[in-house]
Design a protein around this nucleic acid. Structure first.
Lengths: 334, 334
DNA sequence: TTGTAGGCGTTATCAT
DNA sequence: ATGATAACGCCTACAA
């Protein structure tokens, strides 16, 4: 490899000043088309590439966005990331991915790392465990623009990209009711996460609207992992009065619960109908396929990054909450 | 936000020179523990953070790794990425993710972008379509260390992290044979990708070992997407002599094919047994669950980044090919 | 339209 | 053990 070419090399060779070269690449109107063409031709010939490191130092920008998600390998999240990545690259931004594993402490460390590597902005879906917000406030302190998606942070005024969780939970529950279900259990997540509160609220509203009384014994809070779904199945099986339907706030818990129920001879959907949330692809392949809520993750990712880029270009723009369209996908489990 | 503190501010306040401050943070032995403690205390008090941008310019390093994958939201790949990300963060490296969508031209552009943002190294699984290697050679030209995983590039000597595709394909095929199957179809990928050649080779070896003659009419090459699987199912259904088993080089094609076969009244595994490759989680939830090959993606990701970091620290180390353990996971589809 | 000069914050090198 | 100086490569106010 020959030594790297700099604008000074070009300047020397072309008998111009390095500032002219710099301007040529910045498409400044203050350099003639002729000189620009000359410079660019020579640059190409010599294999010149702008030194991003130097450029970054000068501008105090990295053109890099940090993305913090609970788990990268969950379909919903990796698809959101795909959307972010697509639009970011189109706009000549790089994306750094970090996973919090749903742990607050890890999330805290990741954010510190991202801030200290001077990302221009952060897109985040907060960890299930997060119940203190010091690390999130720090982002705002540093005036680094943030966009929350899916799981917003109530405590912090920022841009949010969400679906209407309450409305979809309402739809899901009403769908079960309209199919004649009377005792509908709800698997909720940890209560510090806003989406689970919203989904619970939607569930409650549907019950109210249709004159069903809420039974606190049918509302279960857990982290909604596979093992929680299996656990909850066992609990349901031991109830004197079993529910005739389940509305789960995610698919993972719904599916693992369904498996345990089926192993115990429960017929899904005849005995117990089940509805999940997120529309993970594997739900389409279970027997029976799982009714769930499609959150349009690709759209969500694209809108999140677009919102962030807009904020970067208009630092004074006021923050807002945007909603992605979403819908109940009805399959055989309900 | 108060203005950013620099080492010069600290120097002024502590009546030291900026170089001493710099050394204190670099843990240089050339500064007394006392001064170091003093400096660090003050730094903490004032909220000093090292300016990574300036540091990067000085060292001409970014502590950033570029990762190029065909699709980020496929379980196998997002899990590899999770492994990469985990080890990278532990070692204070950032990871930039980019997806080629299995297109050579996109891969080309992404690599140019990564190189021009001066990543310290690249980890890549090449696109299905890639059949020219100019863009990959460019990485080597720039002396940027590369690690290939899963899909290596034959044309370029580099570090590779792979599984033994041939051996696992052999196992899969032999497993079908030992279960009495005689006419085994093989769904292969595009032939420029080495793993598909290896899997085909393993399939052939198993047939040979067990005295079965290879029938070219039973070997199908395609990009192995969902639609290809459905297509291939239709083709199989039209054959005068149908196969009694399928060994597919990925799960996606295997599952979509299985669905179409079942809709046409074929009993899986009785009429046709099916084995896939990659052990995507949804395979565990199909009816019947899909036999497949577990490639240990998390391990693969971790080993890939470890190999790269090792290469970064030992630029003269010679390249090598490492194998991750892998195994056939037998389920009801075979 | 182009050139000059200085600085972004850190760090390597040489000097004290 | 610490200080002074220059350099990394680019960018921009200001001057011509």
């Amino acid at each position: 490899m020959k030594k790297k070419i700099t604008i000074h090399d070009l300047a020397r060779i072309l008998k111009k000043d390095s500032s002219t070269i710099s301007r040529a690449f910045a498409n400044s109107p203050r350099v003639t088309k002729k000189t620009r063409d000359l410079i660019q031709a020579k640059a190409k010939e010599l294999g010149y590439f702008r030194n991003t490191l130097a450029s970054n130092l000068r501008s105090q920008k990295t053109r890099t966005i940090g993305v913090v998600v609970p788990h990268i390998s969950r379909f919903f999240l990796s698809t959101v990331i795909a959307g972010i990545e697509e639009v970011a690259f189109e706009n000549d931004y790089r994306v750094i991915i970090a996973q919090s594993m749903d742990q607050m402490e890890k999330e805290h460390r990741l954010i510190d790392t991202l801030l200290s590597s001077q990302v221009d902005g952060i897109i985040i879906s907060i960890a299930m465990e997060t119940n203190e917000f010091e690390h999130l406030e720090r982002i705002a302190d540093q005036k680094t623009p943030v966009v929350f998606f899916d799981r917003k942070c109530e405590a912090i005024p920022a841009n949010n990209v969400l679906i209407d969780d309450k409305a979809r939970a309402f739809d899901a529950t009403e769908h079960l009711i309209l199919n004649g279900r009377k005792r509908i259990a709800h698997f909720s997540g940890l209560e510090n996460v806003s989406i689970y509160q919203d989904r619970l609220e939607g569930y409650r509203e549907a019950l109210r609207k249709h004159g069903l009384t809420e039974d606190p014994a049918l509302i279960f809070k857990s982290p909604l992992k596979s093992e929680d779904g299996r656990d909850l199945a066992s609990q349901l099986l031991q109830l004197k009065q079993r529910p005739d339907a389940i509305f789960s706030a995610n698919d993972i818990a719904a599916i693992s619960c369904m498996q345990v129920l089926q192993e115990s001879g429960v017929d899904v959907p005849k005995d117990i109908a089940i509805v999940g949330f997120s529309n993970e692809p594997l739900g389409a392949y279970t027997t029976p396929p799982l009714t769930s809520v499609n959150q349009n993750p690709l759209k969500m990712g694209r809108l999140a990054i677009q919102t962030l880029l807009h904020q970067l270009e208009n630092p004074e723009a006021k923050t807002e909450t945007k909603f992605i369209d979403s819908s109940l996908v009805i399959r055989k489990s309900s």
